[in-house]
Structure formats: structure tokens, C-alpha cells
Design a protein around this nucleic acid. Structure first.
Lengths: 135, 135
DNA sequence: TAATATAGTTAGACTATACTAACTTTATTA
DNA sequence: TAATAAAGTTAGTATAGTCTAACTATATTA
């Protein structure tokens, strides 16, 4: 089963699978390839690994779907991305594209706990901010 | 000269060189090895690369020192680490050890610009915070 | 339905990083 | 100063990730 933990790279593939499923009906290797800007063969490799680790259902030339584990994990990564993007763009004022690129990298290196603390901080900060503006 | 840009891994080695020089008189491969928890042979490889890219002065069995470029770069990384650590621990309330580990990873993926914006945000935030407390 | 286009896979090469084991150089000390 | 210990290096192996080129399967359409 080749170790369950995911590398940053595999997390990117998993996230792409999740997001494309959200946007369209299903996922295809070519879509992942385009979204991530990598060769189709790299996608095949990544899908094999994700399947071996239990994150997706997948076999040669077959349909790709998320397992429960995969869905949970992908949601968690996607959440982190949103939190980070929001903080970077809305609070720090980082330009859109860079905020996105930066969030894409940080999302793989923060724990769930740090993400939760950041979410709470943002909520708190925006509450106080709105009070101040309206007074 | 093998490309000037540094990977996250090489940035870690460079940072270690810089910090050890700050703390003691000089650096030795063994000290870097201990600090980063990697084999001595890995340090040798990394030092060769850092020298080839112009960040350190170094030759076989010789003393290690930072070039101007290396010093500048190391300081920049170290700065980012401090900013991130401060934000994570003081503002988000992340526990010491995790704040440090997380900062160690994020420091390689944020631009100077994002770092500057974060520094300004922290200053601003702490100013307002102190006003509120003292009123 | 046969020809062709598209999608997907495999094989082989390459880069980066790190490891262990063996070897060399430098430093210490008996 | 010769023997030994410590530090540093090299060689060879392994893993992860990516690529290109060639091949196979599936889908489209004339």
C-alpha cells in the first residue's frame, strides 16, 4: 500500500481531481494534465499512487472517482487554500494571482490546527473591522 | 554555474550556515549535519551546490563562509522565518514548536513582497491592539 | 464499420535529494 | 611523532517527480 501520507505534489493532483469533479460531472486525466500544466504521463503516475494509497478509485483506462478518504482529504486541502487565499488577498492586500500561487504552496505545509486558528483570527478581525467602520 | 535559484532544501542549508556563523565563530559540516538532522555526506553535496551557485565560499576540506550574495539571501530567509514565527505564535497562538516548524516550511514559499505585507499588517495590528488595551 | 483522432499508458531518461559504507584528510594525544 | 579519533568526502543506491516518445485503447465520424 506504499505509505498513506501524501506529498505536496500528490496533494495537488488530489485537489485537482476534487475540483474538476465539483465543476463538471467527472474527471479525466487530460483535464488534470491541463489544469496542473504537467504531461499526461505524469498524471497517470500520480493516479496510480493515489489509488494505491486509497485516495481514489482508479484502474487502467477506467473512470476516476474519490474514495471517502480522498474526498475528506481533498476538502481539507481545498479549505486551507480558501482560508489562505482570503487572508492573503483580503487582509494583506496581495494581488490576486500571487495570492493564489502562494496559497497553493502554503496549503500543503500547514496543519489543520493552524488553519483553524487562522480561520478564527480572520473572523475576529473582520468583526472588529466592521464595528470600527460602522461607528 | 548550474542555475542560481535555490530549492527549499538548499535554502535550509544556507540558513543553517548563516545561523551557525551567527551563534559561533565558524561553521563545520558536522554542525550543519546535526542541526538539520541529515547525513554528513548530504551536507557535502549541498555545500558543493551552494558554492557552485555563488552563495558560499568553499572547497574540499576547507573553511566555509558566506559570499555577499549568500549573506543577503540567508538574511532574507531568516527574516521571513521570524516574521512567520511571530505571526503564528503571537497572533494566532500556535504552540512554540509547531510555529517554528511551520515557519520553516512557509519561509521558502513566500515572496519578499508577501513578507513585507505581513510585517506591515503585524505592526498595524499590534498598534491598534495596544490602543484598545490601554483605553 | 473502418479510418482517424483523442485519450491514456508504458518505457526509459533525467534531476533533486538523501542515505549507507568505505575511504581520505585533518586533528588530537599518548 | 606515530597511532587513533574525528571530520569530511566519494561512490553507489534509492525514492520522488517529471519529461518525451512510442505504443495501446477508446471514441468519433465519414
Amino acid at each position: 500500500m506504499s505509505e498513506l501520507k501524501l506529498t505536496a505534489s500528490l496533494e495537488d493532483y488530489l485537489e485537482a481531481v476534487y475540483e474538476i469533479i465539483e465543476e463538471k460531472q467527472g474527471v479525466r486525466a487530460s483535464g488534470i494534465s491541463q489544469r496542473l500544466g504537467v504531461a499526461r504521463s505524469s498524471v497517470t503516475e500520480a493516479l496510480k499512487l493515489l489509488a494505491a494509497k486509497g485516495y481514489i478509485n482508479y484502474g487502467r483506462y477506467d473512470v476516476i472517482s474519490l474514495t471517502d478518504l480522498g474526498e475528506k482529504k481533498a476538502k481539507a486541502i481545498s479549505e486551507k487554500h480558501k482560508t489562505l487565499y482570503g487572508f492573503l488577498s483580503k487582509i494583506l492586500g496581495v494581488e490576486d494571482k500571487e495570492a493564489n500561487l502562494t496559497a497553493c504552496k502554503i496549503e500543503h505545509v500547514i496543519s489543520d490546527e493552524v488553519n483553524d486558528k487562522l480561520i478564527n483570527f480572520i473572523k475576529q478581525y473582520e468583526k472588529e473591522r466592521s464595528k470600527k467602520v460602522s461607528k
